[in-house]
Design a protein around this nucleic acid. Structure first.
Length: 259
DNA sequence: ATGTCGCTATGTTAGCGA
């Protein structure tokens, strides 16, 4: 089974590339983030024509997550248990489903903006709710993984230049501690191969030639339990999908499993 | 580092988020 995660930065303008990529890679289960649209506006038909079932969760112009599967799609859950709101509003940042016996969550963790911004406290609260939701669902038997845009670089090596991140979100100790607490429920980082350079980045800002200069970050992650990681045969970042006309600013992370 | 992209309303350009 091939499972992947991809922040597409709006599903409608990205649809041609997503469809082409699904056809090329034969991905069985794709976790999508940043739909930037409502559940109802998700382009279900063209995805269905490729053989995928779709579970989408979008509330408007921001956020939005989905799971596309041709391995079955059951027990869909929208939102986290005890999920915090921001500025009084619910946001569509998490969706879970069981696909061919594997429980997957597609998550889009809040950005945090700046450490002083209320969005940063919201980010930490959101990660705590993710941990609680995961802890309640985890079992030893069933393969389980949380995939998505975590908006946290787990290690200094996961950004192109740690000195450029002084005072910034994505690298602060509380954010990294929240990831560590998530792993402590029984999950491990499925570390992908880079297809180029020494270190796998998954996101490069559109501006300033960041992609050609490889000024990237590894913030799109796959956290799996032992039943999941024990079945992994390969994992890589498909940086080819960041190239060319009209790409997302994120590349997909692909995981192959002997399941 | 802030050079781009996508979205919406204030609407054919500005402001916001990332």
């Amino acid at each position: 089974m091939r499972i992947a995660t991809w922040n597409v930065n709006s599903i409608l303008p990205r649809l041609p590339r997503v469809l082409e990529w699904l056809g090329q890679t034969g991905t069985d289960v794709l976790c999508v983030q940043e739909l930037k649209n409502t559940t109802e506006a998700f382009p279900v038909e063209p995805v269905r024509e490729l053989g995928y079932e779709v579970a989408a969760y979008g509330l408007g112009r921001w956020n939005g997550v989905a799971i596309l599967s041709k391995a079955g799609l059951e027990d869909v859950t929208r939102g986290l248990t005890g999920e915090p709101r921001f500025d009084g509003a619910a946001e569509a940042r998490a969706i879970g489903a069981t696909c061919g016996g594997v429980r997957v969550w597609s998550v889009y963790v809040p950005n945090g903006r700046e450490p002083e911004n209320p969005h940063y406290a919201y980010k930490l609260e959101w990660l705590a709710a993710l941990r609680a939701t995961v802890a309640a669902e985890l079992g030893a038997e069933r393969p389980f993984a949380v995939l998505g845009d975590f908006n946290v670089a787990p290690d200094d090596a996961d950004v192109w230049d740690i000195t450029a991140f002084a005072g910034s979100t994505h690298v602060t100790p509380p954010e990294r501690a929240a990831l560590a607490a998530l792993r402590e429920t029984g999950l491990a980082d499925v570390f992908p191969r880079p297809l180029k350079y020494d270190h796998p980045f998954t996101y490069w800002d559109y501006r300033a030639g960041n992609f050609p200069n490889n000024r990237g970050m590894r913030i799109d992650l796959v956290y799996g339990n032992a039943a999941f990681t024990g079945a992994v045969t390969d994992s890589y970042v498909d940086r080819e999908a960041r190239k060319g006309k009209g790409p997302s600013d994120h590349a997909p992370v692909v995981v192959d499993l002997a399941l």
